[in-house]
């Protein structure tokens, strides 16, 4: 196992990087102008957070890599993001359901990280938490509005939930990295956040008239880097081509 702290920082930064890039794919094509702007702003916050996490990862690693080097010069098997965030956007409803599920976990995890024994981590968490709470407010409103909306919007939101639910479990599955960080007081044990997540998400789904899937089967491997879905490679090919084709380009 490589340094747990470096692994953890890559996980944080890769989640926000991959989701930020995914959300930015909506720029210019969202259903209405206001949603387009909202999605672009959400992506911007996530990319800003990525810079903070990955710069710290590079600093901890001590091999002279900064956020750009880590974002644009690593291959797909070096990414440590959750399966959930690399899933394709689908329709607007699926994008917002993914956002809602991720934000719900992200807010709880960041809240725990504000108590981190590492002051660099608690500072990034404190900053990110404000932005993420705002994301969650909007995602919650949208899930309720579309879930408890028309017959069409309801059916699409239920389909999105059914499709994405198998990616929820990974957010709470701890491994040796999580255990090492929890022992040091650096990061919370993700498993302990599950009940809070279930309670909060359950309330929103009820209000949205959506039914939580019966099975809690979970796809795993994204955050440990064991495997990723085929979608991530395609996304990175688009995201990294310039820095790969013209290394160290400036303009």
């Amino acid at each position: 196992m490589s340094d747990p702290l470096f692994e953890f920082l890559c996980r944080m930064g890769d989640n926000t990087l991959v989701l930020g890039h995914r959300v930015s794919e909506w720029c210019g094509t969202a259903p209405v102008l206001e949603e387009d702007i909202a999605l672009a702003n959400t992506a911007l916050d996530l990319i800003g957070q990525t810079t903070l996490w990955l710069n710290l990862a590079g600093e901890v690693e001590g091999r002279g890599r900064d956020a750009d080097a880590l974002a644009f010069r690593r291959d797909v098997w070096d990414f440590r993001n959750l399966f959930l965030v690399e899933q394709p956007n689908g329709d607007f409803g699926q994008t917002m359901m993914r956002q809602f599920l991720f934000d719900s976990w992200h807010r709880l995890y960041l809240t725990g990280l504000t108590e981190s024994s590492d002051a660099r981590i608690s500072a990034i968490a404190e900053k990110s938490l404000k932005e993420v709470s705002y994301h969650l407010d909007r995602a919650t409103d949208t899930v309720i509005g579309l879930g408890d909306g028309t017959e069409e919007s309801h059916a699409r939101m239920q389909a999105a939930l059914d499709r994405l639910w198998p990616f929820v479990g990974e957010m709470f599955a701890g491994d040796a990295v999580d255990a090492a960080l929890a022992r040091q007081g650096t990061a919370p044990d993700p498993a302990k956040l599950r009940s809070g997540f279930d309670e909060q998400v359950g309330k929103v789904l009820a209000e949205a008239t959506l039914v939580r899937p019966d099975s809690d089967f979970a796809h795993k491997g994204g955050k440990t880097g064991t495997r990723h879905s085929e979608h991530l490679g395609h996304m990175l090919a688009q995201m990294q081509w310039l820095q790969r084709a013209y290394p160290d380009a400036t303009w």
Partner: peptide, 8 residues
């Protein structure tokens, strides 16, 4: 201090 982490 930055206003938003990604503020250009």
């Amino acid at each position: 201090t930055p206003t938003y982490s990604g503020c250009p």
